[in-house]
Simulated scan of single mutants.
Amino acid sequence: MLEIFGVGFGRTGTLSLKKALERLGFGPCHHMLGLFEDPDTVALWQAAARGEPVDWTRVYQGYRSGVDWPGAAFWRQITAAFPEAKVILTERDPDAWYASAESSIHAAAVAPLPDDADPLFARVRQMSLDVVWDGVFGGRFTDRQHALDVYEGHIAAVKRELDPARLLVFEVGQGWEPLCAFLGVPAPDEPFPRSNDRAAFTAQLARLRAAGSTAEPAG
């Protein structure tokens, strides 16, 4: 049963949050990169992108938490499906977010696929196009102002529509304290995970594309 759901867009510290939640005992945590290990759910996300009904308990079966795309695109449906789940909205400076997303996850989504591309990678990438880049951003992510408007509109909608008692607005640079206070668990005596290095993300995603590896990138 999903206990914690992150509604922040990709490249707002979602991979760091995933690792933090798992360190705190709320794993496994669903994340876009995990779809390479759970390929059967890719079709469910594609159905959601088409507006078809989706059994969210099936999508998140076996997960205690979830962050990042593609879930953030369906935050209203998922928070309604799991009304007891606590919600975390990761934020980042809009300009820094756009620069990071443009050079990493968007670049990976639109780069030409080699003829011998791994079929699973191709399926996940097409799903990300359907859900995120053509869905959430309406095919206009390269229009910087449009993308920033979507990003800021998402943040405003989450804050407006969700019960504040259920919601933590969080920047990963704040570290363990606000997150652990919100979840009611002690803070570990170790650095907060940092997994937002753009170059490392891009390099490891390229390895997934080339080799069809199911290994999760480390941040």
Rank of each mutant, 00 (worst) to 15 (best):
Q145M: 00
K86H: 11
D116N: 15
L168H: 03
A157P: 01
A147W: 01
T142Q: 15
D116Q: 10
A96W: 05
P119R: 12
A111R: 15
R166Y: 04
G135L: 06
F141K: 01
V124E: 09
S104L: 14
V158Y: 02
V158K: 08
A165N: 13
D118Y: 12
R123F: 07
L113K: 15
D115S: 04
E171D: 06
L113N: 05
F121D: 07
V169C: 01
L89N: 08
K159N: 11
T90L: 10
V158H: 07
A157E: 10
K86C: 11
D118V: 04
P114S: 09
A85S: 13
S104R: 12
W133Y: 11
D116R: 15
L120S: 11
V169I: 01
L113E: 14
R92S: 12
H146E: 01
A109N: 15
R125C: 03
K86L: 08
D149K: 01
V110R: 14
D115A: 10
L162S: 09
F137Y: 03
G139L: 10
D163H: 03
E102K: 15
A101Y: 12
R140V: 00
P94F: 04
G138H: 09
A165K: 10
L129Q: 13
Q145S: 01
F141N: 00
A107E: 10
A85M: 13
A107D: 13
G138R: 15
V136H: 09
E102L: 08
P164C: 10
G138M: 05
E102W: 14
A107W: 10
W97K: 03
H154C: 03
V136R: 07
D143G: 01
D163I: 07
A157C: 03
E91A: 08
A156I: 07
E91G: 04
A117K: 07
F121R: 14
D143A: 05
F121I: 06
A156C: 08
D143C: 03
G138P: 11
D93S: 13
Y151C: 00
L148P: 00
F82G: 05
P112T: 11
L89G: 08
P164A: 09
P119D: 14
E171T: 05
G135A: 10
A99N: 12
D149N: 04
E91V: 14
P112N: 08
H146Y: 11
V87Y: 06
G139D: 06
E161I: 06
T90I: 04
F141M: 02
W133G: 04
F141Q: 02
E84R: 12
M127D: 09
I155V: 04
T90A: 02
V150F: 00
V110Y: 15
A111F: 07
S103P: 10
L148D: 00
I105V: 13
D134K: 06
P119V: 15
A147Y: 02
P114Q: 11
G135D: 10
R160M: 02
